[in-house]
Write a protein that binds this DNA or RNA. Structure first.
Lengths: 376, 376
DNA sequence: GGGAGGCGGGAGAGCGCTCTCCCATCGCGT
DNA sequence: ACGCGATGGGAGAGCGCTCTCCCGCCTCCC
């Protein structure tokens, strides 16, 4: 007959309590620092914890507290969703992207999965950075999720509903993303990055895109550019619309109501294509505002290939101040979007919501600033 | 007297059981698809589940199964760790980086945090892509963690020990990373990306770096380059060492034993600096092998700034086949590292380990391939 | 026809923790 | 001196689930 029937498994509160000669409740109180506990007992409990190598079991704790201290970081949008019927722009040729729409593709492979597309933009790395840096000191780690199909969206909601995370941080890449509504309908706490295109009772952080575009316009004008064009973002998302509106507005006010434009999709390739189109139609242009840095980089490439010097012949201004801006030759003059701070604020809003039970909807709008480098 | 004393909270197994007129056990069996259950009862249980909107509580399940169906994706390395004493290179001026060593910095801010550095390299996005794509169909989502300080490492281990995740996928950015050892010492399941610099009983995936470097060397030689230099990665990490060794080896075998080299740190800026150094010492060089694409991009920039055309005057070969390779002008000829597949395999290895109880250590080495584009 | 064996369902014991009670002790005021 | 609140520790009831028993019934074979 052995005395110890539990050789396996990690030590529990019970074990620590026995070692310290106190009750489970007392150990729990010491571990969680709740209520007053006699300093002497506190010390002996701490020693028992150290001696046994105790670590609280998170599942057990969650079960009773109904909190997980985990939050989901969801990148949402319409990838190549076969069920998507809310497309706005061109390209009705659904499924034309080479059958990559199978969510159960055997391996991690394929370069053009939604996940891969997402990380191709330095933007998401910055969001993650901001979120992680805010959450980490608080002992919280984000669970990374992607929701580009309706099935994936359901899985996200299910995940949240089964209490795997306390709330969600949602970054949408697409307009009319149904996820925010799904989450709030389920009564789950969430905060968005960027204003949802249809009004929803949900907190979000966003940038004053129009102000940013204004800064870009004023800079190009002040530089003396007179034949200015713009490469817009996708015009079915608020960021794309607002940057164009702000730019066009300032240009019009400066007496330049006609603004050549070409729509891009926030990718470098789309920026290249757009620049080529603009150059074909307006060979004499001397200034370009691209609605993000990636497209600006593409524009620079195409300009150089067409023998234009940047910024001597054509000045280029980007948007975001991402890593692509400094990596570019010449380095991009760009409108800074403080993504990391915004992401941190988004995390803060969610944590506030989880802590207090104030279900108030707050939105925080950040102001952009101009970063002048070599390209304009 | 109301009959229902539980208006709040989501429905539990008990509720479903009551609605279906069966026991909790039966509902559990249906939900988990375990053992045979009468089809009629099965159907009524399913209806009850749908009617009540039941979702199993993950914490409760974890508590008894001792599994979480969550895994940690840890990016590990030495950031600006004040306690680091295993630094190899120069720079003993600890803390010289402007007080940025405080882990509790108030906001998500600072651009040069470890997290930000990590995402500056497209490599990590690809790792995440591969991991996520493999895990997602299996209902598992990765928890993102960073471990660049000893405290952060302890937190990762604690996180795993408290059963917040079943295992870890570790990507080290640095040699002599103590994390793998810490994790295995704690008896926790983990798989690494890249061979640890000191041998450890742990599974990993890796690339045949030397073979990749050989491909690059052979391509440059076949192209007719005769004054070839290389920009190496950090020479204290296996990937840096092996790529140099493989390249130098092939060059030597081809009768070119003297190989000009400059060490970089896998960043674009370090690549630019290295290229500038090489050009200063060897103005007549006609071929460059950079140990990764980011440095190759930097090299291209510097070459162009010095009036060299790529590939006409100087051929450039990169390594990784990252997004930077296609974004570059001209597009980079590069050695492909199938990061996504490797990351997926890493996830597969971990899941296998978690499923079966075979504690066998396996390593899978992937073969690189040459992708010829415009730069060489 | 009767016993063995398989099959399907229920009862109930926990998993490890928190948290509400409850009780013992102590200090203090009147 | 006595009561009374404050203080600190213990007992124990769950949180929602899984899983091992156990039991009743049906089938099948000798």
């Amino acid at each position: 007959m052995t005395e110890d029937p539990r050789p396996a498994g990690s030590p529990t509160l019970e074990d620590v309590a026995r070692a310290a000669g106190v009750s489970r409740a007392t150990v729990s109180r010491v571990v969680n620092g709740v209520r007053n506990v006699d300093p002497v007992i506190q010390e002996s409990v701490r020693q028992a914890v150290a001696a046994t190598g105790y670590t609280p079991n998170r599942a057990a704790r969650s079960l009773v507290t109904r909190r997980t201290d985990a939050i989901a970081l969801v990148v949402s949008g319409a990838g190549d969703d076969p069920t998507a019927d809310d497309e706005t722009g061109g390209g009705h040729r659904a499924g034309s992207t080479g059958g990559a729409h199978d969510a159960d593709e055997p391996d991690g492979g394929a370069g053009s999965s939604f996940t891969a597309q997402v990380f191709a933009d330095p933007f998401f790395g910055r969001v993650v950075t901001g979120v992680v840096n805010y959450l980490r000191p608080r002992g919280i780690y984000p669970v990374l999720m992607f929701a580009e199909t309706s099935r994936a969206r359901d899985e996200v909601v299910a995940y949240l509903r089964q209490g795997s995370a306390d709330g969600a941080l949602v970054v949408s890449t697409h307009a009319d993303d149904p996820l925010p509504a799904l989450i709030t309908d389920a009564g789950l706490p969430a905060v968005l990055y960027a204003r949802p295109s249809r009004p929803t009772r949900i907190s979000y952080v966003d940038l004053a895109h129009q102000d940013g575009a204004r800064l870009a316009a004023e800079h190009l004008l002040a530089r003396g550019c007179r034949r200015i064009a713009t490469i817009t973002g996708p015009l079915d998302v608020p960021a794309g619309q607002d940057r164009l509106a702000g730019f066009r507005d300032t240009m019009a006010r400066a007496g330049q109501p006609y603004l050549p434009l070409a729509e891009g999709r926030f990718t470098q390739e789309s920026g290249e294509a757009a620049m080529a189109r603009l150059l074909a139609e307006h060979p004499d242009l001397d200034g370009v505002f691209a609605a993000n840095d990636l497209m600006a980089v593409g524009a620079c490439h195409v300009l150089r290939e067409h023998g234009r010097r940047v910024p001597e012949d054509v000045a280029v201004v980007g948007f975001d101040d991402s890593s692509a801006a400094v990596a570019c030759r010449p380095p991009l003059t760009t409108v800074r979007q403080p993504v990391e701070e915004m992401a941190a604020e988004m995390a803060r809003l969610l944590l506030d919501r989880l802590a207090g039970s104030d279900r108030a909807v707050t939105s925080v709008i950040f102001e952009p600033s101009l970063v002048v480098r070599g390209s304009a």
